[in-house]
Design a protein around this nucleic acid. Sequence first.
DNA 1: CTTGCCTATGCAACTCGTTGCATAGCAGGA
DNA 2: TCCTGCTATGCAACGAGTTGCATAGGCAAG
Lengths: 183, 183
Amino acid sequence: MALEHAILVSLLERPASGYELARRFDRSIGRFWTATHQQIYRVLKRMEADGWVTAEEVGQDGRPDKRCWSAAPAGREALAGWLRAPVQPEAVRHELAVKIRGAAFADPAGRAALIAEVERYRADHRAVLASYLAGERRDFPDPADPDARAALQHVVLRGGIAYERMVLDWLDDVLTTLRDLDR
Amino acid sequence: MALEHAILVSLLERPASGYELARRFDRSIGRFWTATHQQIYRVLKRMEADGWVTAEEVGQDGRPDKRCWSAAPAGREALAGWLRAPVQPEAVRHELAVKIRGAAFADPAGRAALIAEVERYRADHRAVLASYLAGERRDFPDPADPDARAALQHVVLRGGIAYERMVLDWLDDVLTTLRDLDR
DNA sequence: CTTGCCTATGCAACTCGTTGCATAGCAGGA
DNA sequence: TCCTGCTATGCAACGAGTTGCATAGGCAAG
């Protein structure tokens, strides 16, 4: 249950409103930790009660007011303690792998539909890889990153890039295998 | 919500009791879809009510009786329909990536603890890769797989192997980056 | 002979996450 | 002018998943 900690990291990188956090969880942080605005608002409320974050009301013109959240000292301590704790084993849920094994029990028409779906899925991942590479060129043009924060953000992004490349190669393998079944 | 379908695939590959299914979800199927015995028993009950699976009481000597589940025709149809549906976008939850970005806000002692944890995590993944490779040698000695089921199981396993290799390479990158921070 | 482990199934309570909906002001286009 | 969409927050209900516990027989080690 690391949503609190993901929010703390994001707020330490830059204070934000719940809404802004939700958009970050659709983009940068969301690459490796997803969350909806509902979860974020609820957890922020709990974190405020625990003294992990503090809010500042910010009036804006032309827009609704917002509450800008920052990590409090107690939040920094909670994060430091969590960083020392062991990484929890991950709950893998790879729906496509289930479908591929299920294809053994489908007829040729069903397998053809799955091939089309795998192709669509592959196109999605190609687009994700392209956006990662564009983000890398934009945010990390210098190979030696100046500060710790950038170096760590960069290595996480390189992990995303490596993952997407691996997925694309594997999907080629999957497509070859599926096509060979009805050759 | 694909647990039903993962169970159907597993039962089509071989009928099993709830307990045996739970053990499969700790091993082969569990590589890409985790589930506890509680979920499995509850979902089996619902699937039985929907006519997707049927149970046969099997008396055993020296052991408690068990209920051996098989996929029913309605279950095969449900699976075929699901195979045609689009793959849902996955909810990524990569705790280690959050911790790595959080390391920017830790002191050198905290980062040292994280390095040790990453090394432990890497050793776990090395062990997983070794078990995948052993399973591949055991179950798929022939490069050209004879039937559809084996070919599809094999390509999913190759995905697991590619994933573990990618993770190991990335963790080396992570360790280098973390060590350079306090060089 | 007792303790712990394995097979085998299940209930109850809880937490986590998703979905649908609601409010409310402002901006821009048809 | 009305409709759509964006910012910004939140409630309520539901479904999925986890955790702790319970039962119950057999087996093996100490």
